[in-house]
Design a protein around this nucleic acid. Sequence first.
DNA 1: TTGTACGCGTTATCAT
DNA 2: ATGATAACGCGTACAA
Lengths: 340, 340
Amino acid sequence: MPATLRDVAERAEVSVRTVSNVVSGYEHVSKRMRTKVLAAIEELDYRANPVARTLRTGRTGMLGLVVPEITVPYFSELARDVIDAAAEYGYRVMIDQTGHDHDRERQLLMGDDRTMLFDGLLFSPLVTKSELLDMHGSTKMPLVLLGEHEFDGRYDHVAIDNVAAAKDAVEHLVQLGRSRIAAIGTQPLEEYATPLQRSAGYEAALHDAGMDVRPEFATTAAHYSRADGYSAARSLLERSPQPDAIFCFSDLLAIGAMRAVFDAGLSVPEDVAVIGIDDVEEGRFARPSLSTVSLDTPYIAREAVGRIVTRIDDPATPAEEIVAPHRLVARESTSASQSQ
Amino acid sequence: MPATLRDVAERAEVSVRTVSNVVSGYEHVSKRMRTKVLAAIEELDYRANPVARTLRTGRTGMLGLVVPEITVPYFSELARDVIDAAAEYGYRVMIDQTGHDHDRERQLLMGDDRTMLFDGLLFSPLVTKSELLDMHGSTKMPLVLLGEHEFDGRYDHVAIDNVAAAKDAVEHLVQLGRSRIAAIGTQPLEEYATPLQRSAGYEAALHDAGMDVRPEFATTAAHYSRADGYSAARSLLERSPQPDAIFCFSDLLAIGAMRAVFDAGLSVPEDVAVIGIDDVEEGRFARPSLSTVSLDTPYIAREAVGRIVTRIDDPATPAEEIVAPHRLVARESTSASQSQ
DNA sequence: TTGTACGCGTTATCAT
DNA sequence: ATGATAACGCGTACAA
């Protein structure tokens, strides 16, 4: 059995109160007491029990980070940055995967008993229908939304301007002289905000360039995975006319799409230019390296953690919408000169 | 304030004992009582406080997973599988990043106060010097080691046969007819087990093939990252003679190495064949697709979680060494016919 | 089958 | 500055 505060108190011949003061770094402790206590702690190899502390203080020092899949590079990079940012505030992060499971999202949001472990929740939801958020109403768990969805004034929310980001990407393809610009990542359901906003940006850019929006060029992808990007691109290449550029709603989709282009005997960017969104490291080492829209994930993480921490300290803080910067990063997959 | 067990008891006009019985699924509760309690729970939106429960039972229902970096695909895929495996036993997983920080590894192993949150620890260490493990001795925290290190009989330990895996990879290059086979991933320090074992396999394969081990062909890599693979390969290509094959100690190194080969104006596999270890999804979509040694991560995760769970239930369980299967997966990066 | 009362290890309140 | 003691919310030994 590990030593308790009381054990230390007995050993040092002081009260538990004094030991607690020493442990929690309270100012007003006499030097003599402190050294006695410290010695006892050392001898007994005492370590504070975080569970008991939590029961008393009501704080766990843990944040929950909810993402669809930790294996998606964007989310693992986000997780890393959130973990780092949280550490600066003395918080630790527990990652929850929803695995594209709506029920799981709802459960976490409504607060199953495990959710109570967190002082706050950073939620990167797939589904952003307001009904989902309504469910969270009864819980008092501080909540910050990551990623796009319509801001309704109830919850803190940090994301990039998705419509603009998508538009920037497509305009880049237009400036390249491409005229048959396809998209991968639209969604048949109206449940998800990300695809809706990126579709809007895609169509707006085409419109501004005086191009038609061809419905057969806007293809769906269920999971923003490499495999989905591959099969979507494959079917796009069977169209005639073929697209001469593909805007993918995520880098992973783009990676899959590029592979499909090669397997069709064509090349990127000569035959088909490809661009994604996210700027994950994988794209920088791909062949050709992947053009993309970079999201400044460290910024997003810092802002999100900052918001949740202030909200934990003062639940009455008004909700805020934070727009993170994004910028186009042109690499080989959309370069004018051929890149082999 | 959330409702407590006592609130529910009052509302349902029964004792806390009965409520507790209902909540924890105790058998012998009369139907009438149960429905009354359930109704009260519903009305008050009661949720058991996991912290109080933990303080009482001594169990948190959480496992700690310690990895160097969550953004490394192998670790995020491992994390996903561990999370899934743990869920089947009713455990949740908290991921800890050590970020190549030895002190952090030591801290977690020795049990800082936060470590006490876990019922058990799955530890994928960089450093495997026995001294590190000695430190864990005083703690009673159940521990399972993931990944390679010498088995010393004290701790459960699940890993592949690293020497054999490396040997298989190199033999594959030999069978391809390559004769100047380099390696990326050796370590200058003797602190790490993985590079030592993979080096041993590399040298054994060369030896069996009657080839010399050229010291200048064995290059180091600090972090098994794409960037390190890139710069290591770059310097290898400056040697003369140039290597005609590179065995990388991880897929990420191999991804970086392939990119370096292309940037040098050479091609894979024609000029230089490349093979890695891990079988991460990224390699399957790379161009050319990456040959590798596949590790059966789900198996590793299942075994590790199974071990830790039995050890939690019975701390006296003797330590066991579990060797996970591996298999060579030949893809385009080592194919005999050119793959463009 | 159900009720009462105590303890898990800590922090906070009230004294001194 | 320090000591005694009451919570925090739950599980369970013991009693009924």
